[in-house]
Design a protein around this nucleic acid. Structure first.
Lengths: 242, 242
DNA sequence: TAGTGGTCTAGACCACCTG
DNA sequence: AGGTGGTCTAGACCACTAG
């Protein structure tokens, strides 16, 4: 049972995405919506805070709340900012396109120094090292390397890595939601090695996204680094001043 | 007079940045801090929500709140996520390095179709087109193009573009804070033209950040696009599942 | 002046974690 | 059992915008 304010947020979100409210249109006031949903203003405001952070609405003091210009484009947006938990690649794009994976590498290795630090574990412990090529509608678009603490997940079936969602599998096995994702975005050029995996030329631009993923109990279980074709991906950001 | 929860957020923020709390250390509970600051838990929680979004703390249900691993590095982080309003380049980095600008172009032009759409204005209206090279400690690190609605700011002194902070100037002239910044991050290669402005080679990787800036009354006044040397900048992101 | 979002109080109950 | 964060209520006052 999700929190009431999340339910309300998703309900209004649907109203916006289905164009029940038009872009730029004023949506009902906090007091009206609170009455409609049978909650207090504070609860409704929590819903609207999230919606604002997701970039779907703008709130203007004294005027009201308005449907924001949602950026639409012919490239994919990494982390639409949406969703109630971190989704991962498969679940994020699975709705809008056919997602597949090629498993390139899957080894149990001793954690490299840097990875052990990120995962807050002893370097003597073992981690899964996984390299996958991800395809959208059969076009290879990115290479993703993952290092996963084997204490959290002892075994990862190949089927999950090739067809399923790794994050979904981890949520199922651990019974915990994935909560934190601190990431860093960098620009770089594709090396020969990575370019070959994507059947493109070396020297083309990439967006590199790396970061640690944690469970809701704070346990860091995954460090991942993805190398994305810059001509296929953008990243959206929505900053709101306080 | 800033809101109480912003004051509290900044106070705790200082405690963390000055290492009064160590990384990974548990900070006092919500109830304790609320008592300390003489506010209710709801107010304190608003402060902590912002701090969490800024990536400075992690909150774990049933356990407590902990100082997060703050990424430190030898490159600059675009939008530290911090600050109570959108700062812009000068005010963001002015503290840690010597920031200067070279003014390349400043023209009053008819708004191009695409810009007019972004700024929600008629294409017949005029905009300032400004191209600047930004330098950190005398090293040119990015090119920034700005299109600014001349209805909002009729005149922009050259001194502001060459030495001052454009955003600060706009806040002073309009008497309004800058509130929204919806941006899109892309990867690309430097063209000959842009590379020449930075005295680097064409074909090197860049991080391109573009977006619309708005005043607190919702007025879109600026569309900007910056071309950042990928070897000098990273972008930090902190996503928290709901 | 009336309506709007923004902030804040003083409680309450729940879900989660640890000993 | 006791402490923690997460949610929610039913009010209140303020600051801003508009006609």
């Amino acid at each position: 049972m999700a929190a009431r304010y999340i339910e309300i947020k998703n309900s209004i979100r649907e109203d916006i995405l289905s164009h029940r409210y038009q872009v730029g249109e004023k949506i009902p006031s906090e007091r009206e919506l609170a009455a409609q949903y049978g909650v207090t203003r504070v609860t409704l405001q929590k819903a609207m805070n999230v919606l604002e952070q997701e970039g779907l609405i703008e709130r203007i003091h004294g005027k009201g709340m308005f449907v924001a210009n949602v950026i639409e484009d012919n490239v994919f947006m990494l982390n639409n900012g949406t969703g109630d938990s971190i989704l991962g690649f498969s679940r994020e794009f699975g709705q809008q396109a056919k997602i597949t994976s090629q498993l390139i590498t899957h080894d149990l290795i001793k954690a490299p120094q840097k990875i052990a630090g990120q995962l807050e574990m002893q370097p003597t412990h073992r981690v899964h090292f996984i390299r996958r090529v991800r395809l959208i509608d059969d076009i290879p678009v990115l290479v993703e390397d993952s290092w996963i603490n084997s204490d959290v997940i002892a075994n990862i079936p190949a089927a999950v890595l090739e067809q399923g969602s790794l994050y979904q599998y981890i949520e199922e096995v651990t019974g915990k939601k994935i909560k934190f994702y601190n990431s860093v975005i960098e620009g770089d050029l594709f090396s020969e090695e990575l370019a070959a995996l994507l059947s493109i030329s070396a020297g083309l631009p990439m967006l590199k996204v790396s970061g640690v993923t944690k469970l809701e109990d704070g346990k860091a279980f995954n460090f991942s680094c993805s190398y994305n074709r810059a001509d296929m991906f953008k990243i959206k950001n929505s900053w709101v001043g306080k």
